[in-house]
């Protein structure tokens, strides 16, 4: 069962018969984890909420400035730009990536010879995709004289500088994210394997077409996995940083067309050391991600189907 499944169920589980508690041993085993929660995760979240209401440059002590940072957000046009860029990136690339993942998983399902080979070939880009090296490669491929234009040239098509054109720069990053569909594909493959073959056999006997079988058997029975992939890939895409940073040379350019939210956060916090505003930006990101995750969980009640 996935982490999300556990989380959904925790709210409804009744819990078994009471067992002997072992608080002391548990505390010792969890000591590193508790320390991490306090110092590395929960503590910093609270701290950054407090810093959101300050002006802080790391050198002078933080200075309370009320709602200044929030007011600034409303008039910060680069912030609005970065939100727009990030939303387009997330809501275009994640559906495309999941459609590719599901399509390939269905093609590869059940007794196909060479399955292990295909699975590896499609999965490998997921491992490489977040590296600086692949971002370097992308910069060459979509450059004015890059690989893509060389190949287009063979067919007599004139290319352009895909990365230097603000209209297409973001698309090259979307392509890169779709390219890493292998990880969700592997999860879909594992899920498809859980669907009993007899459902399809029964449906075939009743004369159901492949498409009907897909809609009435595969999609409902796979829906928890589709949901899982959707939630995680959305969260993941909101956090993309490396590719946009390397491809744009750290600027989010041209004309802020690849200014991902995380790039803007990095620029405010770690180039300008505008830590108060960066904290407020970090909290806004948390609220946005939590909001979309909550919407996903809420919508899940309507379309995700649990088998037990």
């Amino acid at each position: 069962m996935s982490a999300l499944g556990e989380l959904q169920r925790l709210g409804t589980s009744k819990g078994g018969p009471p067992r002997k508690r072992d608080n002391k041993a548990a505390f010792l085993f969890l000591l590193p984890w508790f320390a991490g929660l306090l110092l590395i995760t929960a503590g910093p979240i609270v701290a950054s909420l407090a810093l959101s209401f300050t002006d802080y440059n790391l050198i002078q002590p933080p200075e309370f400035n009320g709602l200044d940072n929030i007011n600034r957000m409303f008039s910060d046009e680069r912030l609005h730009r970065s939100l727009g860029v990030t939303f387009i990136y997330v809501f275009v690339s994640v559906p495309l990536q999941l459609i590719a993942a599901l399509g390939l998983a269905i093609l590869l399902d059940r007794g196909l010879r060479g399955l292990a080979f295909y699975r590896s070939a499609f999965y490998l880009p997921s491992l490489l995709g977040s590296s600086v090296a692949i971002a370097v490669l992308w910069r060459q491929i979509f450059g004015a004289e890059g690989l893509l234009n060389q190949i287009l040239g063979i067919f007599g098509i004139a290319g352009k500088g895909w990365i230097s054109d603000p209209d297409t720069a973001l698309s090259t990053l979307i392509v890169l994210n779709v390219w890493t569909f292998g990880a969700p594909m592997v999860i879909f493959l594992a899920g498809l394997r859980q669907i009993p073959v007899m459902y399809y056999e029964a449906a075939s006997v009743d004369g159901a077409s492949r498409w009907t079988q897909f809609r009435k058997i595969t999609v409902p029975l796979l829906s928890p996995i589709i949901f899982f992939n959707l939630v995680l890939q959305i969260i993941h895409a909101f956090q993309s940083f490396t590719q946009a940073f390397v491809v744009s040379g750290g600027t989010g350019g041209p004309s802020d067309s690849t200014l991902f939210y995380t790039l803007y956060l990095y620029e405010r916090g770690f180039s300008r050391f505008d830590m108060g505003y960066a904290s407020a930006l970090a909290w806004l990101l948390l609220i946005i991600i939590a909001g979309f995750t909550a919407i996903n969980f809420w919508a899940a009640k309507r379309w995700v189907f649990y088998d037990d």
Binding site: T41, P44, F241, L286
Partner: peptide
């Protein structure tokens, strides 16, 4: 599911 970007400033 917590993004590191949220934690990075105080960290």
């Amino acid at each position: 599911m917590l993004p590191i970007h949220v934690l990075i400033v105080p960290q």
